[in-house]
Design a protein around this nucleic acid. Structure first.
Lengths: 227, 227
DNA sequence: CGGAAACTTGATCGAATTCAAATAAGGTGG
DNA sequence: CCACCTTATTTGAATTCGATCAAGTTTCCG
């Protein structure tokens, strides 16, 4: 549960207000093409970004080019709860597909935080969810095998998309490149290709166009070693 | 900056109040011996814990015994800001040395959060710091070599201890076992032994008793590849 | 249709693990 | 303060998982 309910308000139905008053709506809306960097680390920013359409990802890059993806952002995700509290971050954000996002003034959002307990509460929930996801990723990268990591990457996406009613018949949008999977799981794209190839041969998944279908959910869960 | 200022209040000087009113002071104080588990994952708890003396660590254990340490807790650290918002966590806490800690009722602390802006602000800072640390750890485990990880582990501890005035002449308490380093860096204790052995032979560090002295800070920083 | 980006596959390499055994450090009771 | 026992650490040899290098192939778009 990381989506910020404001997004629905902003994009789909401005009357069915989530938790934010309408005076905040209609703020800066933006569009970016796939691959575009929409936030560069250490840049100052007075805005809090929310993804409305499309996918993006949060990443960090070492000076020698090694890249680690910290999280994939889906429609409705707030671009890091932390952005609400700080005007600078050490990671960058890049659009994965063409995206649509809106930016809300931090000061205004912050004022709301203090005055409206419902907003504060929801904000806390997002902070906690983000921290728990980061911790899970630490465990994945520190202690899980390549197969487990990749299976969990896929299942994790499916769960988040499921919460958005975007999974049908175990099939869902999958615009990520293998290089993204590699950078998210701490592997190389070559190895990701081998593992996914093995998954495919074992009849676990099918990837066509930009979507993925899970053919054997139980087995994939078993491999992911959820426990 | 993860320490919660209440701790000084509780342990050293009850008159020099930090950010908490004295009615919160003198709540449950506890003691645990090294190795004792002081919180077991998924247990319900109405308390927020603050370490007063000694070291502990946050960890998660997979069903097959693999263990990942998520963070080392030093005196003054609040045991996870998240505990302020949730009554259950998916990780466990274990004492690394004999420790001294206090537990404050969550409900009371939470009330304070809403009424005292200073406390809320400090709380936000801790949340952000914890999230940033988790993200850093993800990058370490996903994209750094064993040497880098271990150098960074050591330097990270030094920085935190420095903020507490507990570093003298590049030397500081170091009660962690190599197994802890291994579980914190996603390696095996055997490999940690080899790397630390190499550091020692290269004249970078010296470990005696339960303390560590950095003999060549610049070189250790270079190896850590901070950028 | 052509060119670039993404994916696959094979061969080889290497960092870190595993297995196993020896040595060193602590802590306890006598 | 020493003998004993347990818990750490070190070291070596063999193995393995995933990385690297290097072509091919396929897919995607304009």
């Amino acid at each position: 549960m990381r989506e910020f309910s404001i997004c629905r308000v902003l994009t789909v139905d401005s009357s069915a207000n989530g938790h934010l008053p309408s005076r905040l709506l209609g703020q800066i809306h933006k569009t970016s093409q796939a691959r575009q960097v929409i936030y560069r680390s250490n840049e100052r920013s007075d805005a809090v970004t929310i993804i409305c359409e499309g996918w993006a990802y949060v990443y960090s890059m070492l000076s020698d080019g090694r890249r680690q993806i910290l999280s994939i952002l889906l429609p409705g995700d707030i671009v890091t709860a932390t952005a609400m509290l700080k005007d600078r971050a050490s990671f960058s954000i890049q659009a994965l597909t063409d995206i649509d996002y809106c930016q809300i003034d931090r000061t205004e959002l912050k004022r709301l935080l203090v005055t409206d307990p419902t907003v504060l509460d929801e904000f806390f929930k997002i902070l906690v969810a983000e921290k728990e996801e980061a911790d899970q990723l630490v465990i994945d990268l520190g202690r899980r095998t390549a197969d487990e990591r990749i299976a969990r990457f896929i299942l994790g996406l499916m769960n988040r998309l499921q919460a958005r009613q975007q999974v049908q018949d175990n099939s869902f949008a999958f615009p990520v490149r293998q290089q993204h999977i590699a950078d998210a799981t701490g592997l190389t794209s070559v190895h990701v290709s081998r593992v996914i190839g093995a998954f495919r041969k074992a009849g676990l998944v099918e990837i066509k166009g930009r979507s993925l279908k899970i053919l054997n959910l139980n087995e994939l869960k078993r491999i992911s070693n959820a426990a």
